[in-house]
Design a protein around this nucleic acid. Sequence first.
DNA 1: CGATTATCCTGTGCGC
DNA 2: TGCGCACAGGATAATC
Length: 272
Amino acid sequence: MPELPEVETVRRDLAAMYVGRALDRVVVTGRRTVRRHLPERLSAVEGRALTRIGRRGKYLLFEWDDGQVLVAHLRMSGQFVAVPTGAPTAPHTHAVLSFDGAGELRFIDPRTFGELFLADGAHRPLAELSHMGPDALEVTPAYLAGLFARRRAPLKALLVDQRAVAGIGNIYADEICWEAKLRPDRAGTSLSRREVNRLSAAIRAVLEAAISARGSTLSDQRYRDLYGAVGAYQSQHRAYGRAGRPCPRCGRPVQRLRTGGKSAYFCPHCQR
DNA sequence: CGATTATCCTGTGCGC
DNA sequence: TGCGCACAGGATAATC
């Protein structure tokens, strides 16, 4: 379940590996991998050099020297892997980008929720991502205060809503709420200025610590970086997935709350 | 407007 | 040992 820290880790590795390289060939075999337009359109980036890898929330942006932007989203189970040319093909490999002198970048995705598409590079910022809120690493207390003033919804619902804040998913929303000592089901409108400040600081602290640890790999071993290595932040999870186990702050059991088919983990004693 | 549910899809892990 | 099923959740659409 790649969220901002995992996507940022992949972004940095992709940049180090491929920026400045020319793309020789793109081959898409997955039926659902490119679904916003004809898959053949991706060949428009063949022959271009990669100038930059950007990120907006959980989207990765491959920027080419002619202004085109190839957008990728890993969704639930997507993964990019860097392999030498001709390496054995792993199951669920849906796309292969061959770089001049840098081997192959493969897109693997068992559940096929992930996607690739070519954005309309003439429009900046990208029209396809225009619905998204500011990146989670950019939000300020003032922005959050404004958000809570106009949107009445539970705190966690707002944190995972990409239109409100981009990059946070179910796991880091729980970790951020724990760090900020706020219940995930608190109404956003009820937060004091002091609590908004705490939340803003917690967003940054949790995401930056998770990036430093190269993201979280859960027991399903799903998330892997570009080279197949696991993340380390899962060992620092305080709330997510810890139902019944002691809260690291107060020792009382962490509780699991279910809303709308999703789980929220929190400490009812020290999160208020 | 917001809360809830369903949809897409496969691997995993549980209970029986 | 094997079968069936709930569960995992990112984004989006539909419905109440």
